[in-house]
Amino acid sequence: MADQIARANGQPPMLTVEGLKTYFFTDEGTVRAVDGASFEVQAGKTVGIVGESGCGKSVTALSILRIVERPGRIVAGQILLRRPNAKAPVDLALLEAEGAEIRAIRGGEIALVFQEPMTSFSPHYTIGNQIVETIQLHQDVGKEEARNRTIELLRMVGIPNPERRIDEYPFELSGGLRQRMMIAMALSCNPKILIADEPTTALDVTTQAQILDLLRDIQQRTQMSVIIITHDMGVIAEMTDDVIVMYLGRVVESGPVDEIFHQPKHPYTQALLRSIPSIFAEPRTKLPTIAGSIPHPHNRPTGCPFHPRCAEAMPGICDRHEPRLRPISEAHFASCFLYHEPEAAPPS
C-alpha cells in the first residue's frame, strides 16, 4: 500500500509504517489496538496523528519504538526506518525487542516525549542524572562532557539557570519545566525522529503554547522529523505538515494538513472538525458532537469500524465490507465507501 501513497517529494520517507497490527492478548479477549495502520513520515516534516482516546495512537508510537508491553505484541506489518549510512531501510518490527540494535535506535535515532510530565521522570534521581545517562548510553563521552552537554541542552529548551536546575529532583519542578526537561532529554542524542505523545495535554494553556513553540523552533533548527500524537485538532492545525486520522486502530484518512482541514473526506474527520469550538460560530448554538461512543475494544463492529456512528453509513455495504485506504487526490487518502466500491468478495 505504501507504494500507492504518493511521495510528497522525491526523497524516500524517513519512516514507513505498513499494515501495522499490534494486538493485546488479554484474558477477556484480543484487543486490536492497532489494526493495520499505514503511513509515512518524511524527513524534516511534522506529522500529526489524531483521533479519540483509545484509537491506537499511543500504541502506534510504542510499536515504532518496540516497547509495547505484554500482553501486547506486534502481530503483523513493517516499520521501515531509513538510516543515514545504510542502503536498505531496517524493519524495526523484525528486530529483537530487547536487542542491542533496537536499543541503539531508541533514544538515539527515535526519541519519545511522553504525555505525563509529572511522572515521566523517576523521582529518585536528579534530572541531570537521567539526562546524562541517556547521553552516555548512546555516545562515547565522559561524565563531565555529558554533563556539560546536558546543561547546554537545558539552556536550549529555555530552562533558566540550567547549572543549578540540573541537580534538582523532578518533584522540585513545575509541569512546564519538566516537559522542557523531557524534550531536552529526547533531543540529547540528536534523534532523526521525535515522537511527541500528547506533549501538551497535561499542561495549562499558556504553557501548552510555549511548549508547542519550542517544539516547532527545535524542529526548524534541527530539521528532524516530528510525529505529534494528539486528540487536539488545534495542535494539529498549528504544528503539522501532514495529518493521519485514526479510528479504532486504523488510519481512516491521511493527507496534507490544508486538505484535511479544508476538504475532509471521511465522515469521521468531518465530524471531528465540526466538533471544534469556533469563535466565528453563532453564539449559544450547541457544539455538534459525534453520535454514540467508541465501541468497546473487544467487540469492534464488522465492516467499516465507524459505521455504527456514521451519519452516511450505507446499510448492506458499510456493515459488511471493510473499506481500504484509497487515494482521493495526489497525497490525500481516505478509507470510505463513499469514495470507492467495495471489493467483490466480502471478507469472511
Partner: peptide, 12 residues
C-alpha cells in the same frame, strides 16, 4: 510512565 521513558531511552 518513567519506566516507559527509560525504556524509550534505549536502556537495557
Amino acid at each position: 510512565p518513567y519506566v516507559i521513558t527509560a525504556r524509550a531511552k534505549g536502556m537495557s
